[in-house]
Nucleic acid binder design. Structure first.
Lengths: 189, 189
DNA sequence: GTCTATATCAGGATAGAC
DNA sequence: GTCTATCCTGATATAGAC
């Protein structure tokens, strides 16, 4: 699975070759087919693996850093996707590929939509911690804008149209703006 | 070229089959190869065609609607990408595919980065018309955020994670927010 | 479980006639 | 310019031995 994640990060979901994956794992292609029904099965398992791993590093901060306030946690959650580490690169790349593939493959859409909803919801909760008086609708809209922006910036970064440092700055300023917006729409007590 | 644009919208850049393109155009594959060197040549020509067409419908508003104020023009330019017409769908799909492919194909990056810069610059200019006192840096940053958000929302829409109407609402509210932000950072005279 | 073939097939590209 | 026929490569998937 780790090898598969690396291959997807290197070649994309649609560029994944079973032979290359086998080489990456140091086994024969036949063994891959022994463990997975077919190419689609490999993909399914790998994307699940990647999502699990992403979920892990998204939530493991919770108990570990009690000193982090809600806003800090929000920033960290969103900026996490804009980092040049192998894990994040793999996850973001796979995520982008999944979305791009879903445009042409309806089978992928449901999983993707669900995962997106979960993420938007998480960010919405964090925004709610910072601004407890904001309406649910306002929080959801802000979360939707912020997460969509992360995806947009991430794909610009990965496709070489934007420097990582700039992407992070733009994201940070967007967070500030959204929080200001929330505090104006329903001022805190 | 129109047939190619349709096929790309249906199958993606990486899913384009020369045979399907030939069928779409009602000719043989051999004739396609008579006109284009190879598959890459087909792709190059088609993406150029699509970009030209997109450029056309982006700018043809200028002389036609003198009544449209700067803000209206800004909104129209950005919301244009979020419409369910064949042209826009084709353009947005191709654009998303191009970006997704560029992650794995360095050859595509330069063209893409250039086109992105042009677009960001255009939006920056429009923002400047609305807020002539804002600094160039602030305008560019806002344009970068807004265009990245359009891309993020567009790919969510095309991949079935977001309703078009919602995407448009989110985009409209983001424009409002960015304009407010600009007016605060350097208040108008 | 794991390997070495190998069947099979799709799709890019070309030859050569008209 | 346009077609039919076909070559050829690369990639999925399987058979069968160990």
């Amino acid at each position: 699975m780790e090898g598969a994640a690396r291959v997807i990060a290197r070649r994309g979901v649609r560029g994944l070759r079973v032979e290359e994956l086998a080489a990456e794992a140091g086994v024969s292609t036949a063994l891959i087919y022994y463990h997975f029904k077919d190419r689609a099965g490999i993909l399914r398992a790998t994307l699940e693996f990647i999502n699990d791993r992403a979920g892990r590093y998204t939530t493991e901060r919770d108990p570990a850093r009690p000193g982090l306030d809600a806003r800090g946690e929000l920033e960290q959650t969103l900026l996490l996707e804009l980092q040049d580490t192998p894990d994040v690169r793999e996850t973001s790349t796979a995520w982008g590929e999944l979305r791009a593939s879903a445009v042409f493959d309806p089978d992928l859409r449901e999983d993707l939509a669900r995962a997106t909803r979960v993420w938007v919801h998480e960010v919405g909760e964090l925004l709610g911690l910072v601004h407890p008086m904001a309406s649910a609708a306002a929080l959801t809209a802000a979360a939707e804008r912020l997460t969509a922006l992360v995806e947009g910036l991430s794909s610009r970064w990965l496709s070489g149209s934007l420097e990582l440092a700039q992407a992070r700055e733009l994201m940070a300023s967007a967070i500030t703006t959204e929080l200001e917006r929330l505090s104006r729409s329903r001022p805190p007590v």
